[in-house]
Each structure stands twice: as C-alpha cells, then as structure tokens.
C-alpha cells in the first residue's frame, strides 16, 4: 500500500493518513486482513512523527477499519465492507473539500453540480478543450 501526504493540504496529517487507508479500501488495493505498514516503517517513509501514525491507526481502530494484533501489527479488520461504509464516508470527505474550494471561488452548490455533470459527460465547453473555445 502506498500512502501519500500533502503538506500543502490544510487537514492534519493523521486525518490524511486515515483517508489514504480508506481510499485503499475503496480502490481495492487494501483488503480485509491485509497488514498495514508498521508505525516505524510508515513514519520513516513519510518523515512524520511516529505518534501521528499511531494516532491515525488508533482512530481507524475505533472506527472498526483496522485491528491491532499485539506483537503482530496492524491489519485491516476482517469484517470491513468498503462499499457500505468507507465509500460513502470518503465521498463525503471529497465533497466537503470540493464545496470548500467552490465557496472560496465564489461558486454555489448548483454551479458545482452543473459543472460536475458537464465535465463528466465530456461537455465541449469545459476548460482544457481550448481548441473549440479559443480557436474558432
């Protein structure tokens, strides 16, 4: 499993680690009973305080996402159903960030929804398709 952090992201690092684990479950790169990296390994590879990793793992354990087996390490909980809980939860988190970004740019929810559908549907007026906008 590869965990990425962004130091430009305003969210605390332990929350980012939790969301990365959730994202691994939703994408299927992490499955029930899979081992997570040890606190030492993950803090070393991310160059963060080991307590930050412990904090993330403890919060994930409280949420029932992982289970700590003493002396063996941290594992994805056997009963995790990513589509029932982790997917909607992660989606809400992404939505919160998108809404905050929209609000910063002075956009309302309706603007964002319209634009999301257009972009998803490959609308020709979207940004990055400049040949049709600027070229003619």
């Amino acid at each position: 499993m590869k965990i990425r952090l962004s130091h430009a992201d305003g969210r605390p690092l332990y929350i980012q680690i939790m969301d990365e684990v959730r994202s691994g479950l939703v994408r299927g790169t992490l499955r029930p009973e899979d081992p997570l990296p040890s606190v030492r390994e993950l803090s070393s590879s991310l160059r963060v305080n080991p307590r930050t990793v412990s904090q993330a793992y403890a919060a994930l354990e409280r949420d029932g996402v992982v289970r700590v087996r003493h002396g063996k390490g941290t594992f994805v909980a056997p009963g995790v159903r990513p589509d029932e809980r982790e997917r909607p939860r992660l989606a809400r988190e992404v939505a919160r960030r998108a809404l905050a970004d929209a609000s910063r740019n002075g956009l309302a929810l309706a603007d964002l929804m319209t634009a999301l559908r257009e972009v998803e549907g490959g609308d020709p007026h979207r940004d990055g398709d400049g040949s049709k906008e600027g070229g003619q």
Partner: peptide
C-alpha cells in the same frame, strides 16, 4: 537532509 528526517522518525519510533 531527507535521509536525516527518515532517521529521526525511526529514532523516535525506537
């Protein structure tokens, strides 16, 4: 520098 940060993280864990 990057190696040093990794060493410090491990040191704190150990």
């Amino acid at each position: 520098r990057d190696e040093t940060l990794s060493i410090l993280s491990e040191h704190l864990a150990d």
